[in-house]
Amino acid sequence: MTRENSLLEVNDVRVAFGSKGFRKSPNEVLHGVSLDVREGETMGLVGESGSGKTTIGRAILGLAPVSGGEILFQGKRIDNLSARHRRSLSRDIQVVFQDPYTSLNPAISIGDTLSEPLLAQGYTSRDARRRVGQLLDRVSLPADALERLPREFSGGQRQRVAIARALAISPKLIVCDEAVSALDLTTQRTVLELLLEIQEQTGVSYLFISHDLAVVRYMSHRISVIYRGDIVETGTARGVTDNPQNPYTRKLLLSAPIAQPAEQAARRAAYEREFASTPR
């Protein structure tokens, strides 16, 4: 089943929540999803709220229960690992979450946040300190950031800290879950550039999850489109965004307004023609 060059493979994965209550049927949010990420590749995953795109990321990270199918990392099963094996896997798979305000503990200094994963992987505190210095430099944050608390930083800077934390132990795959969605336009662009630069230097793979097709198109080699727990289309970035085959992908594309009035007018006309909502 292993595909060539695959770093991560998600095969027919199902995730269901809410089977906790008595006689309550579980609510399946992923109905057999498959995708793969190659070494050094960015796989874009685009979908709207409730599509299950975040759940895929969480299943890969071991934060959501996999009820069917399998997840392979470098050919080995990683779904439903024991806590100990999962911890050792954290060397290879890391995450950057959407919200830079809640993904950093407000009471812990930046330096401690960054050295935490290093210490957990057995670094000595001196080595960890040296590595944290390199990391701050890597994400273009001043060295005096170490002593400070997250609230002293802007959203973009916090997201740089989150990226530095993900990079700390040189993982092979980083799951970016809406990593730039909470940022202002100009900040968003600089953070995306940073991610691209890091990929070029380190060869890390990204699973880049976003609701924004324009961002995914810019970041990804390939794109999968997910709709209500099913992947409806997968292809190269250019193929999916220039010539979408699935009607939902087309709708997604035509719904996103672009900042050029003439092109937007054409796009809207096409949208109204194809998907004109039928009022009443």
């Binding site: 935490e116 957990a120 700390a168």
Partner: peptide
């Protein structure tokens, strides 16, 4: 969640 992914006990 981030701490769990970082491999903390």
């Amino acid at each position: 969640d981030a701490a769990r992914v970082s491999g903390l006990r």
